[in-house]
Every structure is written in structure tokens, then in C-alpha cells.
Write a protein that binds this DNA or RNA. Structure first.
Length: 113
DNA sequence: GGACTGACCAACC
DNA sequence: AGGTTGGCCAGTC
């Protein structure tokens, strides 16, 4: 019982919970997610967590800081899926295939869109 | 229970 | 202007 609730819920659940709150058509960077959930949480950990994401988590709304679809390095096919899903939600892309972060970046503070 | 692994990121060649 | 390095730290083996 005395086990810290933080560990009990695990970082995993917290990250999932935050990602679920990202509205359609908006994205967050890995580093931003980590910084929002628990300040010292590194972006790298968030990336690992996304790998285990279940289908009910909109993992595709998490991209690299510059809007790059970083999954591209690991699995180009999945990057294509991610781009499709984002485009379907109305996310604006640069010609390079990167997400336009200036327009689509989202943070919990701006609950009112 | 120590060592390895990363959907990262920034700094440095 | 592109490759390498190092820090980051929760999971997994």
C-alpha cells in the first residue's frame, strides 16, 4: 500500500493518458510529452513507451521535435501509415513530409482551442 | 539485480 | 550538411 502511486500507475499509464488527451489534428513532440508528464522524463523513454502503445492510444499524434516522423528510421511503412492518419485529421505537412509544428503543436495548457 | 535497449535530442566533429 | 557521441532513464532479459 505504501508503494508510491507513481510507480504503481507507472510512467506508462501516465504517458498513455496524456497522449489520449491530444485532440485530433494536433501533435506533440516526444520531449514535450515527457516534460509534461514528469519533468525529468527523457524523450527517449517516451519513444520506448510509444512502441508498446495499444490501439486505443493515438500514438501517431506524437512526432519528433521538428515534426519529423521518427519511426521512418525504424519502419518506413509505419511512417506512411502515421502520415496518412495525421493527414486524415487535417494536420498540415511541409513538402518534406514533416508536420508543421507551428500550426499543429498542442499542449495541455491550451485546453480551449 | 546488473547489463542491454531504445518511435529522442542536442552537441560535436 | 551529414555522421558520430553522449546523456537520458524506464522496461526488459
Amino acid at each position: 500500500m505504501l508503494r508510491r502511486e507513481v510507480n504503481q500507475n507507472s510512467i506508462l499509464q501516465r504517458v498513455y493518458d496524456l497522449v489520449r488527451q491530444i485532440p485530433a489534428g494536433r501533435v506533440m513532440s516526444y520531449g514535450q510529452v515527457g516534460d509534461t508528464v514528469i519533468p525529468p522524463l527523457s524523450a527517449r523513454v517516451v519513444g520506448r513507451i510509444m512502441y508498446h502503445a495499444s490501439d486505443d492510444v493515438p500514438w501517431w499524434r506524437v512526432v519528433g521535435k521538428d515534426g519529423d516522423l521518427l519511426i521512418l528510421k525504424r519502419d518506413p511503412q509505419m511512417a506512411r501509415l502515421q502520415r496518412h492518419l495525421l493527414a486524415q485529421e487535417g494536420v498540415i505537412f511541409h513538402e518534406d513530409g514533416r508536420v508543421n509544428m507551428d500550426i499543429c503543436r498542442w499542449q495541455p495548457d491550451e485546453e480551449e482551442i
